[in-house]
Amino acid sequence: MINIEKLSKNYKKNEALKDISLTVKKGELFAYLGPNGAGKTTTIRILTGLTHKTGGTAYLNGFDISKETLKAKRQYGVVPQSTNLDHELSVYENLYIHGLLYHMQGAKIKERIDMLLSYVALKDRKKSPVKELSGGMKRRVLIARALLHEPVILFLDEPTVGLDATIRRRIWGLIKKIQQDGTTVFLTTHYIEEAEFLADRVAFIDKGTIVAVGTPHHLMEKQGAWAIDLIENGQVETQYFNTREDADQYNVNRHKSYTLRRVNLEDVFLTLTGKKVTE
């Protein structure tokens, strides 16, 4: 569904993306995980026609983003990191304009708006000006807008950034539902738990390079199952173990402060890059 080959982007002397290659399968929920400035948003911006690439190729549902730009653009919907709704207009008007941009007929647009506002539980806010909505509601409007023209791919750029835990969980549920309805989802995030909860597969990106790709289970399995964080002189040192028993054994006769926990994707990223995703 998404095929990227040696995609690169240079900003003057800064290499934002260094020949990255990726494949996302149809119906997959793919998480693109990395710290701020790693190249996640640059990748999405190139794929969605907001930024020129320096080199490489990318195909969306078989359409080359450079040579068949308009056809490629019909394949996806985008939920950007920062809200780009018209705050002066109502929810309905924002969605209606989106429908016109995708050459939809008036009756079809109205039908889809009603359906999608129910889908994102915002039917009662149809006539509300966007400026009166909360952050979580705006994010749901963005998701409804991105799905209006029935795309086969949904790009979500940090969809829950800045939202509280409850709203974040609600958005996660919505994203899962979208995937179950058959849409391929490409999600960027720097929230470990978001990737672990949602993704079928994860790619780690750091300094414009993909450092690992795999299922969360597969990536974490290599690291071990249990981790002990030892706190000594204000420094945290982490040890990994395949079984709980091994971890318990390690702690025998140690009187240091420690935390026993399950291994997560943050550990994998830390081992691969020497830094945390959230740094």
Partner: peptide
Amino acid sequence: WHIFEEFQAAPI
């Protein structure tokens, strides 16, 4: 408002 990005991403 970054609305220009909505136009750039659309097939127009």
